[in-house]
């Protein structure tokens, strides 16, 4: 009955911990004050969305996209797509034709 568990979980109000977890997933850092503000605001929006949550639409198919296009192909023609310099020009830091970032596993000094 995992689905039922999940559906009942949805009806629980959004908690401060939920928001902190979501912020982490979205790679955003929130202050304690922001956590409080966002929790209230996001809970209000989700509360409004309860009208949708309550609808029985099990027999309705979802719309992912408003215009039914499938298998969109272009002609397989060779084009010049060498934009490396233009792309690197916009980078905060570049070196040897590549994007440069801080060490992947660097630790606080």
């Amino acid at each position: 009955m995992a689905l039922l568990d999940r559906l009942s979980a949805v009806s629980e109000p959004l908690s401060r911990d939920d928001v902190a977890k979501v912020a982490g997933l979205a790679m955003l850092e929130l202050s304690e004050e922001e956590l409080d503000t966002f929790t209230g605001q996001l809970a209000a929006v989700l509360e409004h969305a309860k009208d949708v949550e309550a609808l029985d639409v099990a027999d309705v198919s979802p719309t992912h996209h408003p215009y039914p296009l499938v298998n969109v192909f272009r002609p397989d023609e060779v084009e010049v797509t060498d934009v490396r310099e233009a792309a690197l020009d916009a980078a905060p830091e570049a070196e040897d034709g590549q994007f440069r970032v801080p060490p992947a596993l660097g630790e606080e000094p």
Binding site: L3, R6, L7, A9, V10, L14, D18, V19, V22, A23, L25, A26, L28, F38, L42, V45, L46, A49, V52, E53, L55, V57, V60, S61, P62, T63, H64
Partner: peptide
Amino acid sequence: IMLGTYALSAGYYDAFYGKAQRV
């Protein structure tokens, strides 16, 4: 971003995003 991340997260996708697409 946080609202969307929440609506797409495991366990909530069907109830929120999936349902909204049916609406």
